[in-house]
Design a protein around this nucleic acid. Structure first.
Lengths: 114, 114
DNA sequence: AACACTACTTTGCAATACATAGTACTAAAT
DNA sequence: ATTTAGTACTATGTATTGCAAAGTAGTGTT
């Protein structure tokens, strides 16, 4: 059983997961392990069991596409990239994120005033 | 059926829900309708069916306390406030939020570099 | 007494992150 | 050539939790 704090912190991270993954894909065509590495470098942990189904979901929604590529060190990899629709989607999420940051700052930093 | 975009946007907001509610309670002793009004003013929507169970959960976790207060215009109200433990919890969440904003900015704004 | 308004509670559902286990391909070791 | 290790992708079950919707109850007005 995990603590309340860990739960709440995880909740926060969950909210931006999709957004971050799409952002990473908007810069590079990468395969899942690359994404995990990049997110870990930014202190945003993702694990396989989360990422693979999420990528499939985004692909089925028409936001992502992939191509197979051979690998020297194992089975072939799925290299993902954004579709046109995916780019529009990402743009909308970026706006939402900016608004959210502003809203949270309002809520958490404003003083009582009558 | 709601769109993918609405889903993703809602996910983002969910992540900060607990944090914002605790923040509001750290400034004022308020009852649930006050919280709903404040969050709506900051463009963060919460509805009764979400808020009431959440407050109960936080209270059971020892982060909140409440006292009953009579109302002129209806049934008595539960006025909530943070416990000492709740304040510590909120402080930890504030740190997490700051780190998250930084991490997201890293992930979404950094350019490809080799 | 009936109705409206406000406040709080409960129930069931849907979305989804995660742990875990499983499949499959490649390369190296024996 | 078969086994073993490493990598990549897939599938399944569970727990959390936000929300819609329906229900209960107190107060004041008509």
């Amino acid at each position: 059983m995990s603590s309340n704090l860990e739960n709440a912190q995880a909740q926060m991270r969950k909210g931006v997961l999709e957004f971050c993954i799409l952002s990473i894909l908007s810069r590079n065509e990468v395969y899942p392990s690359d994404i995990i590495a990049e997110m870990k470098a930014s202190r945003l942990i993702v694990v396989e069991g989360t990422l693979y189904p999420l990528l499939t979901r985004l692909k089925n929604a028409g936001l992502l596409q992939y191509r197979w590529e051979e690998s020297k060190s194992g089975p072939p990899r799925k290299y993902y990239s954004l579709t046109v629709e995916g780019r529009e989607f990402l743009h909308a999420l970026q706006l939402t994120w900016n608004e959210l940051v502003e809203a949270v700052n309002l809520t958490t930093k404003s003083e009582t005033q009558s």
